[in-house]
C-alpha cells in the first residue's frame, strides 16, 4: 500500500505544487524544469519496459498462432533489425571530430543503414497512414453528414461554405458577385466563418477545457481523486 499508493500520491502532490508555484515565483522557475527533466528521464528508462512488453506480446501471438500472427512476426523482425542497426551503429561514418573512432559518427545521417530505414521505410509508411485520412473523411462525410434537423442543416450549409471556399471552386462559383457584395463570396465567407463563428465556439470550448483541467488537477493534487492510481482504499 505504501509503495503503490502513498508514495506515488506524495510524489504527485509535491511535484505538482512545486511546478504550479514555479510558474509564479521567479526563484523557483528552475525547479519546475527539474521535475520535467526527471519525468523525461523516467520515461526514457521506462521504454525498456515497453520493448519487453512488445516482445512478449508478439512472441506469445506467434507461439499461439493467434489471428494475424504473421504480422507479429513482421513486427518482431523489423524491431530487431532497427534495434541492431541503430544500437550497433552499423555502417556509420566516423565523426569529423574523431576520425579514428569507427563508431564516432551519428547513425541518423542520411547515408547510413539507419538513415535508409528512416528514409525508405518510415517516411513512406507514416505518410501512407496519414493519407488514409482522406478516405476516412469521405466515408464519414457520406454516412454522418445528414440534415436531420435545423441545427444539422446549418452545420451542413457551413460545411459547404468551407469546403468550396477553401478551394478555387469558391472563386468560380461566386467570383461574379460585385464588390459591394464581396463579403458573400465563398472565399471571404469561409474566412468569416472561421474567424467569427469558429473562433467564438472554440474559445468557449477552450475555456471549459481549461477549467476542467484546473478542477481535475486540484482533485489530484489534493488527493481527492486517486482513481489514476487504481482507486481503491484511501
Amino acid at each position: 500500500m505504501v509503495l503503490t499508493r502513498l508514495i506515488p500520491l506524495w510524489i504527485a502532490i509535491v511535484s505538482g505544487v512545486a511546478i504550479l508555484v514555479s510558474a509564479f515565483i521567479r526563484p523557483m522557475e528552475s525547479w519546475g524544469e527539474n521535475f520535467t527533466d526527471t519525468f523525461n528521464v523516467i520515461a526514457a528508462i521506462a521504454s525498456v519496459l515497453g520493448a519487453g512488453s512488445l516482445l512478449k506480446a508478439n512472441l506469445a501471438k506467434v507461439s499461439r498462432r493467434d489471428a494475424g500472427w504473421g504480422f507479429a512476426l513482421v513486427v518482431l523482425g523489423t524491431f530487431l533489425i532497427t534495434l541492431v542497426v541503430g544500437l550497433g551503429k552499423i555502417g556509420v561514418h566516423p565523426s569529423h571530430d574523431f576520425p579514428q573512432a569507427d563508431f564516432g559518427g551519428k547513425q541518423e545521417s542520411a547515408d547510413t543503414p539507419f538513415g535508409w530505414i528512416y528514409e525508405f521505410a518510415m517516411v513512406p509508411l507514416t505518410s501512407t497512414m496519414f493519407a488514409l485520412l482522406a478516405f476516412y473523411v469521405a466515408s464519414a462525410a457520406f454516412r454522418a453528414f445528414r440534415a436531420k434537423n435545423l441545427e444539422a442543416s446549418l452545420l451542413l450549409g457551413t460545411a459547404f461554405v468551407i469546403l468550396l471556399g477553401r478551394t478555387f471552386a469558391g472563386v468560380v462559383l461566386t467570383g461574379w458577385l460585385p464588390d459591394w457584395a464581396s463579403g458573400l463570396r465563398l472565399e471571404n465567407l469561409s474566412v468569416y466563418v472561421m474567424q467569427v463563428f469558429n473562433t467564438a465556439g472554440n474559445r468557449a470550448i477552450i475555456i471549459g477545457i481549461a477549467l476542467g483541467v484546473a478542477a481535475t488537477s486540484l482533485r489530484i493534487l489534493l488527493g481527492v481523486d486517486r482513481s489514476w492510481l487504481g482507486g481503491g482504499e484511501r
Binding site: V17, A18, V21, M28
Partner: peptide
C-alpha cells in the same frame, strides 16, 4: 514541495 522548491530555486 514549496520548501524544497524554494530552496532549490
Amino acid at each position: 514541495g514549496c520548501v524544497i522548491g524554494w530552496g532549490q530555486g
